[in-house]
């Protein structure tokens, strides 16, 4: 098999960096997330490829938190759209864990299927090559396998690497992956490598049947109890690798400006507030319910897979200690209202 020795990793990254912007898991000061290799400060920052995962997912690479869409220019009654800002510059996400990769596939479903292709997403996405980092040692908060993911052989990767101590195995899975491989072929060796044995998951999460059961639980009393300590902040949605909801807004200086889109959160009251002031999800509990139903039921009904990828980030970040694993358990145990 092809092998990338860890001692050659940085030179390989430098090579890839010549033709694409490479995003990797890094610790920068107190934060960890996917940052450009260009911003890596030798001696200060730490590469986190060997860590379980980083706190902020690579979502912003495929769906930036703020993304300009088009320019607006007004002259009297005339209005012009001179420029649109689709960005198809080449990028590599290097070392995405299977949970984060699956989250991107979920976003592909949203932005590229069901009648319309979102041009801003499509241009950016087509120029992205994903090197997935297989997981042999799930962390204590992980439950990707329960959410229909194979952590050892994740679907949808362009390249899959496996950490075997001194080196990574390197396997191209798609033409894009082959092209990436060709770029660094001088740093790859052909040899056999023994991969680590997969460790069992710490948490036992049973998602089977949850989506189906939830269909009858919209009006269940359980939501009040589960959601009443929720602060309705947006942390869970913003650290989530798969939450994709966005807002479209405009910024003008006098007669010129642009329209942009930015992440939005279904936890915010403003999210579904109508122009006339009405809001079908005016209460925090209703918004809480909608989020979990979207993750565990609605998305599965529409796209055939849950929108939760078991990365555990929301569990780690929630100020109120709300735990999606516990919620799945409680849904399983809940009695259906008569």
């Amino acid at each position: 098999m092809k092998v990338l020795s860890k001692s050659k990793l940085e030179t390989a990254l430098n090579k890839l960096n010549q033709s694409a912007e490479v995003f990797l898991p890094m610790q920068k000061d107190k934060e960890s997330g996917f940052y450009s290799w260009k911003l890596f400060n030798q001696g200060q920052d730490e590469l986190m490829l060997n860590a379980l995962n980083v706190y902020l997912p690579p979502k912003n690479v495929v769906l930036p938190q703020t993304e300009r869409m088009y320019s607006i220019k007004q002259e009297g009654q005339e209005i012009k759209i001179d420029k649109t800002f689709e960005d198809s510059s080449p990028r590599v996400i290097f070392g995405a864990r299977p949970c984060d990769l699956k989250a991107i596939l979920c976003m592909d479903d949203v932005f590229l299927t069901r009648g319309y292709e979102d041009s801003f997403y499509k241009c950016r996405r087509e120029a992205i090559t994903i090197v997935a980092n297989a997981c042999f040692q799930p962390g204590p908060a992980c439950f990707c396998a329960a959410m229909e993911i194979n952590p050892l052989e994740p679907a949808g990767a362009d390249v899959i690497i496996c950490d075997a101590g001194e080196a990574y195995s390197w396997e191209a899975k798609t033409p894009k992956g082959e092209a990436l491989t060709a770029q660094i072929t001088e740093y790859l060796e052909e040899k056999s490598l023994s991969l680590p044995a997969a460790k069992p998951f710490v948490q036992d999460v049973k998602y089977e049947g949850v989506a189906e059961k939830l269909k009858g639980m919209f009006n269940n009393h359980i939501w009040e109890r589960l959601g009443e300590s929720c602060h309705n902040c947006g942390i869970c949605t913003y650290v989530c690798p798969s939450c994709y909801c966005f807002d479209i807004q405009v910024k003008m200086w006098g007669d010129e400006g642009y329209r942009f889109r930015c992440w939005d959160s279904c936890m915010y009251e403003e999210y579904s507030r109508e122009a006339g002031g009405g809001n079908p999800r005016g209460s925090g509990i209703e918004r809480f319910r909608n989020r979990f139903l979207h993750k565990l039921e609605f998305f599965k009904e529409r796209y055939g897979t849950p929108l939760c990828t078991g990365c555990g980030r929301c569990i780690v970040a929630c100020p109120a200690g709300i735990n999606i694993v516990k919620i799945i358990d409680e849904i399983k145990e809940a009695e259906l209202d008569a």
């Binding site: 932005f111 966005f246 479209i248 939005d264 579904s272 109508e274």
Partner: peptide
Amino acid sequence: EMRMKCGIGKCGRCN
């Protein structure tokens, strides 16, 4: 009727 932003089933809010 619900609040809408994208109109093409992507932005999430009118479900």
